[in-house]
Amino acid sequence: MAAPESGDGNNGAARMVTLISSDNTRFEVEAAAASLSQTLQLTILDGGGGGGDGIPLPNVDSATLSKVLEYCIKHAPAAANGGAPNATAVDRAELERFDNEFVNIDQSVLYSLIMAAHNLEIEGLQSLVAKKVADMIKGKSPMEIRRTLGFPDPTPEEQAEMNAHMLEYGWAYE
């Protein structure tokens, strides 16, 4: 297999790169989609990840990587348009629908996505998952937040600190 020509590969077919998850699964995706990752972008620009060489991602398992790539593939066309100034309202609504559905997942997957988005520096995904956690916190009392996020039950000292806080920041609880 020939090495990809960087930059001017205008033969109709999009340039592909291979990413290798921590459990050694290989994922072949369009370079444009993988390049949403700031971490991967330079390597890909330098021509890495093509042909038989994959880019190893020792911090990301295959289940998480497949989810991350689903996001990247969906968002790559809009990102290629420079934040999609030409996008129609329908396109934007579709992306929003996709995003809402995308983070409708259980917390262990959400946590893996947060870590992967951070390690791979995928800005849109970092915002999406942070917003999801913020939404989970919203409108709840500290005890409800603790339960939602799976904190262990508070120790008596922690409980006393929480009560003191509620007194000091009374306005935050109105």
Partner: peptide
Amino acid sequence: AAWSTAAPNDGVDRISRL
């Protein structure tokens, strides 16, 4: 930000490890 439903919680405090 808009409201949305909470992700199912399995009793593990992962968020604090972030």
